[in-house]
């Protein structure tokens, strides 16, 4: 981890219930582009880690390697002590425990909102339909779209769709949820409704990895900010520390560009 400025202040309130996601020396190339370079990252149970950085820095790719939507060239990733298996039944089982929320929502377009939230429970967890429906309705209420449950995704606003996507992830009772730029495709007035749901999740103790450009969310909800640039983790710190006193020049440069407008 050379060149990484790490800050763990005395006020560090990360629950020490063991490491949930561990990335060790992860490398990945897209052709000639070395998109992830020797990534070491550990995420503890109940921790909210926000990954920020300029476009093309590899943060989305990092997020997608954690449930193996992107394969890696070298290094290791383990979740709850188990290394990520090859594509197959094992991997599917592991993915069921890792929720994912995408930038473009990716709700199943041919299924209603309710069916979207029930599908994983019924087909992967083998939950009884009635039980799954009850849970789905409760989750949809929780994210504030309970009244839309019989509509199709295309009939909802972006903010509503993303909240349904969060409910769909929650329905699997995941150990950790990955958020890949969850608000980047939203109109400005819809960003807050999604962030509020995420804030609530963070308060409830969900383990979250959030790739985002929302610095406000990073400040208020994150236990730790990971700053990436050019495929490397350049800096890891508590949010207050990072935003008020970034160590690396790369982070100073990045923050000066986004915060001073």
């Amino acid at each position: 981890m050379s060149g990484v400025a790490k800050t763990k202040g005395p006020g560090d309130t990360v629950p020490a219930a063991g490491d949930l996601v561990v990335l060790n020396g992860v490398n990945k190339h897209f052709g000639a582009l070395h998109v992830l370079q020797d990534i070491d990252l550990t995420i503890a149970r109940g921790e909210v880690v926000v990954v920020i950085g300029p476009s093309g820095s590899g943060k989305s790719t990092l997020c997608r390697t954690i449930n193996r939507l992107e394969t890696i060239d070298s290094g290791s990733i383990s979740i709850d002590g188990k290394p990520l298996p090859q594509e197959g039944k094992e991997l599917a089982r592991l993915r069921a425990d890792v929720g994912m929320v995408f930038q473009s929502f990716n709700l199943f377009a041919h299924k209603t909102v309710l069916e979207n939230v029930m599908l994983g429970q019924v087909k992967v967890r083998r939950t009884e339909k009635k039980v799954a429906e009850k849970k789905a309705r409760a989750l949809l209420d929780r994210v504030g779209v309970g009244s839309q449950s019989d509509k199709y995704p295309a009939q909802l606003s972006g903010g509503q769709q993303q909240r349904v996507a969060i409910a769909r992830a929650l329905a699997m009772d995941p150990k950790v949820i990955l958020f890949d730029e969850p608000t980047s495709a939203l109109d400005p007035e819809m960003i807050n409704e999604v962030l509020e749901v995420m804030q609530q999740l963070a308060r409830d103790g969900m383990t979250m990895v959030v790739v985002t450009h929302e610095m406000g969310f990073a400040r208020s909800a994150a236990n730790r900010v990971v700053f990436m640039a050019d495929g490397r983790i350049v800096e890891e710190a508590q949010p207050e520390e990072f935003f008020s006193n970034p160590r690396s020049d790369r982070a100073k440069d990045f923050l000066s560009k986004i915060l001073h407008h």
Partner: peptide
């Protein structure tokens, strides 16, 4: 869209 299959795989479907 590719995202449909990705979302399904992410749920743990084979």
């Amino acid at each position: 869209p590719v995202g449909q299959a990705e979302a399904a795989r992410a749920l743990g479907l084979g």
